[in-house]
Every structure is written in C-alpha cells, then in structure tokens.
C-alpha cells in the first residue's frame, strides 16, 4: 500500500521519533520516561517506516539485524549490573561517576543505571522490531 501523504509525513516523523526516543531514554532517571518507553518510541519510528515504504526498506535503513541489537542490549544491561562487582557491592547496585564535577555540582553524571537503561532501550527496540518484521514478512 503506497500513500503519498503517509510517505511524506513519515520522512519527518521518523527523525522526530528517533530523537524523541533518545530524549525519553535520557530523562528517564528522575522523570517519567526511561529505556523501555524510549525503546518503544524508537521502534515505532521504524515500524512507521516499514508501513510507509516496506519491511525490506526499513530493515535496510536499520542496517543491523534487530535481533542482534536486542541480544546486545541484554548484554549491556547485564554488564551494567556486573559493574557493581568492581566496587565490591551487591549485584546491580548503582555506580556513579561524576565527570568534570566542580565542587558541590554534579558535573556530568554517568551511572551504571544509565547503561542499564540503554541496555533496556536496545533490548526493547530490537525485540519489538524483530517481532514486527517477522510478522510483516510472514503475512
């Protein structure tokens, strides 16, 4: 099914959705949002593209097999949990690193929680896309 309106708006929407998904991912630590919802939004972008163009086009635009992204995401999430071991704390205890922190300020906070969220983002993103692509190809 080819629709001019859908194809044109999709071009705009895909970029917007992808940026928004990263925004949702990053604000997720203290505010509503996070890896899960970010991954869903990101996946929506590619699903929209798959509907507007075709599954093959969407898969080509993605370049990587979505199943690999999902599994890698699980790996990233697991490693972020393991990082607590370096500080000799129980599994999954959050580890924080404050880059360029002036005294009193937080600088740029980098945490294992963030990496866990990125892992979740990848797992959800990849998992949903694997599923949708498979179903689309099947039917």
């Amino acid at each position: 099914m080819q629709s001019l309106i859908l194809t044109t708006t999709t071009r705009l929407l895909v970029a917007l959705l992808l940026v928004f998904s990263v925004y949702a991912l990053l604000r997720g630590h203290n505010l509503p949002g996070g890896g899960f919802i970010g991954g869903l939004i990101g996946a929506t972008a590619f699903i929209l593209y798959a509907i507007a163009a075709s599954v093959e086009d969407a898969a080509r635009a993605l370049k990587v097999d979505p199943a690999n992204i999902a599994m890698l995401g699980v790996g990233v999430a697991g490693l972020s949990g393991l990082s607590a071991g370096l500080a000799n704390q129980p599994f999954f205890t959050g580890q924080w690193l404050f880059l360029f922190a002036e005294d009193g300020g937080k600088g740029i906070p980098i945490s294992s929680v963030l990496f866990f969220d990125i892992g979740v983002y990848m797992a959800v993103f990849g998992g949903i896309l694997t599923l949708v692509f498979a179903l689309e190809r099947e039917i």
């Binding site: 199943a67 690999n68 599994m71 890698l72 699980v74 790996g75 697991g78 490693l79 949990g81 393991l82 071991g85 129980p90 599994f91």
Partner: peptide
C-alpha cells in the same frame, strides 16, 4: 559471597548473548 548466587544466572545470560551474536 553474595556473588555466588548471581553467577548461575548471569553466566548463561552472557553466554546466550555471545553465542547468539556468533
């Protein structure tokens, strides 16, 4: 000590990731 309980879960999980990628 607490890590002993984590290994049986995390080892196969990481193995799953690696063996899937390869």
């Amino acid at each position: 000590m607490s890590w002993l309980l984590v290994y049986p879960i995390i080892i196969p999980m990481m193995t799953a990731v690696a063996s899937y990628l390869f």
